[in-house]
Amino acid sequence: MADIITVGTLESSDCMVSLKPSKTLEIKIDTIVHEAFYHHIKTVVEKILNEAELKNIHLSLTDKGALDYTIKARLKTAIERFKEANNG
């Protein structure tokens, strides 16, 4: 019933990504390494969303110091599941 997809965990060195439909593009990023990596993470998120051609979406990412690869993997999994759930 719920059209929200959540992947990942909030454990150390991981991140949790959730996606749900929205009227506009909303990206919310919380990270414990905000000072150093917020902009980098935001760029990664935007790039992947762009590649996936997702525009009307609410994305929330809570990062616990995950590596780049982890973030990308979590994002891609979330997007794939989201697409599956929304296109039948």
Binding site: T6, G8, T9, L10, E11, S12, K64
Partner: peptide
């Protein structure tokens, strides 16, 4: 980190 583990599961 136990609470984060549990809360991830709950969320």
């Amino acid at each position: 980190n136990h609470l984060n583990f549990l809360m991830s599961k709950l969320i």
